[in-house]
Amino acid sequence: MAEQQAAICLRQLRFSYDGNSDVINIPQWTLESGQKCFVFGASGAGKSTLMNLLCGVLKPTAGDIQVFGQALTKMSARQRDRFRAKHIGVVFQQFNLIPYLTVAENIRLASWFAGKTTSSDDQNFQQRLLELVAALQLKPEVLHRPSRELSVGQQQRVAIVRALINQPELLIVDEPTSALDSYARDNFMQLLMSVCEQQRSSLLFVSHDLSLQSYFDVDVNLADINTAGGQ
């Protein structure tokens, strides 16, 4: 993908769950490549809905979503899934780890969904996995443990490793600090920013916690760009 393309470009974006009342109505909004953006708003403002639209989980009612120049709105569901696996890392609020799989197996799923199956890909995966584990201050032995045995903080870091394993150009993070105390939250933010800098990923961080704004290049109140007012 060309570096000069905006990370995210929205035009006349609308989304409704019931076909009548819009939850999202954003006439225009752009996130430049390389920016780290903090998106905030009250509960029910539509933050998680917007995140699911941007990563292709939801399809808009109308309008255009472009990620690094690629129109998600023109892709089939399968194409959006593959595009997300290759180019977008997502950290969900609930982490979405499969409890009975080991940490390594949970992370490998992201690589598999991106279509990386050759022996060369596997060597790259192992090297990258160990680098990310070290960067996020996890011990290598955690890779062999079922994810259900991990603490919340460990699950959080594993979710970031999984999101970053395919070296995405864009990282989208949804309310990851809501269950953490202030010390764990600040430690998490410092690690996240460090890894994004190393990987040169654009970052869209969705939260209601305004104390986190200082970590970001730009902040956006969703109410200022979403004329529908959320849900």
Score class of each variant (00 low, 15 high):
140 P>M: 05
187 N>F: 00
188 F>E: 01
51 M>C: 13
141 E>A: 12
145 R>E: 06
12 Q>I: 00
72 L>D: 05
217 D>P: 06
131 E>T: 13
202 S>P: 00
218 V>R: 15
217 D>W: 05
60 P>N: 02
161 V>M: 05
95 F>G: 00
184 A>I: 02
198 Q>H: 13
208 H>I: 03
125 F>L: 02
70 Q>T: 11
184 A>D: 05
88 I>E: 07
93 Q>P: 11
156 Q>F: 06
229 G>Y: 07
68 F>H: 12
8 I>Y: 02
18 D>R: 03
112 W>L: 14
54 L>N: 08
228 A>I: 07
147 S>L: 07
10 L>V: 13
35 Q>A: 08
50 L>C: 07
101 L>R: 12
225 I>G: 10
186 D>E: 14
134 A>S: 14
170 L>A: 12
205 F>W: 03
56 G>D: 06
122 D>I: 02
78 R>T: 10
129 L>A: 06
137 Q>A: 12
11 R>L: 11
73 T>H: 07
138 L>F: 08
15 F>S: 05
137 Q>D: 15
5 Q>E: 15
145 R>V: 06
117 T>E: 07
214 S>L: 07
100 Y>K: 11
204 L>D: 00
112 W>H: 13
178 S>P: 00
18 D>S: 09
104 A>P: 04
134 A>I: 03
7 A>C: 14
95 F>N: 04
69 G>T: 01
24 I>T: 11
96 N>Q: 14
53 L>W: 03
119 S>I: 07
61 T>V: 04
163 A>L: 05
215 Y>G: 06
174 D>E: 12
29 W>E: 10
146 P>D: 07
220 V>G: 06
19 G>N: 10
30 T>N: 15
78 R>C: 02
52 N>C: 06
45 A>S: 15
82 R>K: 11
80 R>Y: 01
112 W>G: 04
194 S>H: 12
57 V>H: 07
126 Q>C: 08
118 T>P: 06
6 A>K: 15
127 Q>K: 14
221 N>V: 04
230 G>Q: 03
69 G>A: 06
172 I>L: 15
225 I>D: 00
211 S>T: 15
82 R>S: 09
8 I>R: 09
207 S>G: 09
148 R>W: 12
100 Y>S: 13
148 R>C: 11
190 Q>K: 08
41 G>F: 12
12 Q>C: 13
171 L>G: 12
159 A>Y: 07
119 S>V: 07
137 Q>C: 05
